[in-house]
Lab assay of single mutants.
Amino acid sequence: QLNEKPLPEGWEMRFTVDGIPYFVDHNRRTTTYIDPRTGKSALDNGPQIAYVRD
């Protein structure tokens, strides 16, 4: 279940091809599976993935 609260300024939620949510921090140009609103991860110790700018 996804959090309904808005993401912090400069953050975006995207999904992997497998449908796993991850979070893009455009301020720091990093990505993470940890939801910045809750501190909880969509994966157990998930790796960071490459930042992609559209």
Rank of each mutant, 00 (worst) to 15 (best):
G39P: 09
Y33K: 04
D25K: 00
Y22W: 07
F23L: 01
R37K: 02
D35T: 01
D18C: 12
G10P: 02
G19T: 07
R53W: 06
D44T: 15
N3R: 06
R28A: 15
T30I: 15
F23Y: 10
P6W: 04
I34A: 10
M13P: 05
G46L: 07
T32R: 00
A42R: 09
E4Y: 07
N45S: 14
L43G: 15
N3W: 03
G39C: 10
P36N: 00
R28Q: 13
I20E: 15
S41R: 08
E12A: 07
M13H: 05
D54L: 00
E12D: 12
Q48I: 03
N27A: 09
R28L: 12
I49W: 08
I34T: 08
L43A: 14
A50W: 07
P8K: 03
F23S: 01
I49P: 15
Q1T: 03
G39Y: 08
E12W: 01
L7M: 13
T30Y: 15
K5Q: 13
F23M: 01
P6L: 12
Y33F: 06
V24F: 05
N45L: 10
G10T: 01
W11P: 01
V24D: 01
N45T: 12
R14Q: 04
G46I: 04
P47A: 06
V52D: 14
P6R: 11
V52S: 14
E9D: 14
F15R: 13
T31Y: 02
L43M: 15
G46M: 11
M13T: 04
D44F: 10
L7H: 01
A42I: 10
Y22Q: 03
Y22C: 01
T32N: 02
R28S: 15
P21T: 07
S41W: 12
A42C: 11
V24G: 00
T31K: 04
D54K: 09
G10R: 04
L7K: 01
I49D: 12
H26A: 06
P8R: 02
F15E: 11
E9S: 11
N3F: 09
S41A: 12
I34S: 09
T32K: 00
A42W: 09
I49Q: 15
P36K: 00
R14V: 04
Y33E: 03
Y51W: 12
A42M: 11
D35N: 04
D35V: 00
P47L: 07
Q48Y: 10
Y51F: 07
R53P: 11
G19N: 15
A50F: 09
F15W: 10
Y22A: 00
L43P: 14
D35W: 00
R37L: 06
G39V: 13
R28G: 12
R14Y: 05
L2A: 06
T38F: 04
I34E: 11
P6N: 15
K40C: 09
R29V: 04
F15K: 12
N3T: 08
G10F: 01
P8V: 03
T32Q: 04
A50E: 15
R37I: 06
R28H: 15
R53Y: 04
D18Y: 03
N3H: 08
P21D: 01
A42L: 12
P6D: 14
P36F: 00
Q1E: 10
A50P: 14
D25H: 05
A50R: 11
T38V: 12
D44L: 09
T16H: 05
R29F: 10
N27V: 11
W11R: 01
P21Q: 10
I34D: 08
D18W: 02
Y33H: 05
T38R: 08
P36M: 01
K5E: 12
P36G: 00
I20Q: 12
R14D: 06
Y33C: 03
F23V: 00
E12V: 05
I20H: 11
Q1R: 04
Y22P: 00
K5M: 06
G39N: 11
G19E: 13
A42Y: 14
R29A: 08
M13Q: 11
G10A: 05
I34F: 10
Y33A: 03
F23C: 00
E9H: 10
Q1F: 04
D54R: 05
D54N: 06
W11F: 06
P47H: 13
L2V: 06
V24N: 01
Y51E: 15
R29N: 10
P21G: 08
A50V: 07
D44H: 10
D35Y: 00
E9P: 12
P36E: 00
I34L: 09
Y22G: 00
W11S: 02
D25W: 01
R28W: 04
T16F: 02
P47V: 08
S41N: 08
G46F: 04
P8C: 00
E9G: 07
H26C: 02
H26R: 07
P21M: 08
F23D: 01
V17K: 14
G39S: 12
N27K: 13
G19R: 15
D54S: 08
E9I: 06
N27W: 05
V52E: 15
Y33L: 03
D25A: 01
Y51C: 14
D25Y: 00
M13I: 10
P47R: 12
D54V: 00
D35G: 01
R14C: 09
K5H: 06
Y22N: 00
E12M: 04
Y22M: 05
T31D: 02
R37T: 06
M13E: 12
F15S: 12
T16Q: 06
L43K: 13
L2T: 09
L2K: 14
V24T: 08
G39T: 11
N27R: 08
L43C: 13
Y51L: 13
E12R: 03
G10W: 01
L43Q: 09
N3L: 05
N27L: 08
G19F: 07
G19H: 11
F15H: 08
N27C: 10
D25F: 01
L7G: 02
D25N: 15
T31N: 05
Y22L: 03
